[in-house]
Design a protein around this nucleic acid. Sequence first.
DNA 1: ATGAATTCTTAACAATTGTTCAGGTGACGA
DNA 2: TCGTCACCTGAACAATTGTTAAGAATTCAT
Lengths: 190, 190
Amino acid sequence: MSQLTESINQMVALTSEEREIIEKAYKTVHIPKGAFWVEQGKRCKEVGFVVSGKLRFYYHDEDGNEITCYFITEGQFMSSFTSFLTNAPARENVVTIEDTELRVINQEELEALSVLVPKMHVFRRINAENLFISMEKRVNMLQSQSAFERYEKMLHESPDIILSVPLQYTASFLGITPQHLSRIRKELTK
Amino acid sequence: MSQLTESINQMVALTSEEREIIEKAYKTVHIPKGAFWVEQGKRCKEVGFVVSGKLRFYYHDEDGNEITCYFITEGQFMSSFTSFLTNAPARENVVTIEDTELRVINQEELEALSVLVPKMHVFRRINAENLFISMEKRVNMLQSQSAFERYEKMLHESPDIILSVPLQYTASFLGITPQHLSRIRKELTK
DNA sequence: ATGAATTCTTAACAATTGTTCAGGTGACGA
DNA sequence: TCGTCACCTGAACAATTGTTAAGAATTCAT
């Protein structure tokens, strides 16, 4: 079976029947590098699982600056969750930074699947909890650490992202300007 | 019935039998002003619902500064979630800033209750999703707004908290020093 | 390979935020 | 009532971060 149910299975043990039902419910989608999966202002009606590839979430603030909210890589469940959960227009754009393969499911299908496989409620809960935990870490970082410390931490925790995306994306993810990140890098190479 | 099941009922419609079961599962606890509910370093094994009162979550960073993570008020579900969910020692202290009444339930009881009332899984999922959404807003704020803007926003969204807690708590919640918040306030009164 | 476009670096200067320290206010118990 | 303590304000100075502008390096399409 696929990575998708493998990942779900790690959170809630599945029977092989359940795995099959789930496999059938999620569709496979290929998105070429640079294409949008979600567009700012439109409703996001799907959640997805990244089989391979990499995506970036970003929005434009009042001054027109691009703010990167997330980088999403292989093995992660993702969506423009706030839009998906509240049915509000998405605040952010989601674009691929590499050719990407997803497994996706829409709202109605997910609800139907959760009826067929009630464990999906538990999975969805655990997933939401994990999202919360990672956001809490991020708030702690932004709230109490300097830009230098935040970059060092990211360098340690996700060097792959830093190496594979333009510096400006990393900078806005950390809440600083590209110029300042460039300065921090220079400082670090000493 | 109580505020507790009223709140749960708003997220997942409950039958009166379910409400009764839930009411019995949650214990009532009174905590006087200034007392700890969770202590940094200990495991948090309960989740709670605030019937009345107000709490503050905070931890000490490497330099010994108190960092306020959350203010929790009436009608909110709360826990030291990362500790509760991962069984790790709590990073933060939770203290009451007013005399507080809680409805609490521990891990085993919650799991047992979720078996008796499977809808609890759905409720817990929705609750986790809501926590995620509020954290996402907070990350956006910290990532892309100035201290001045963050304070203005908080003044608009939770004036009650600003009015009822010492300035230094609000300051660390916003990620700034008390002196700087004092400066911002002065600026605002012009 | 070449030029255009994007991205990155650098530096000077400006704005924001932190640090230190001093004083002032108000609450509260002896 | 008095002193103590916690909290808030203020100002001078320092550190961090943003802004602007220019040039260097890299990427990309042709």
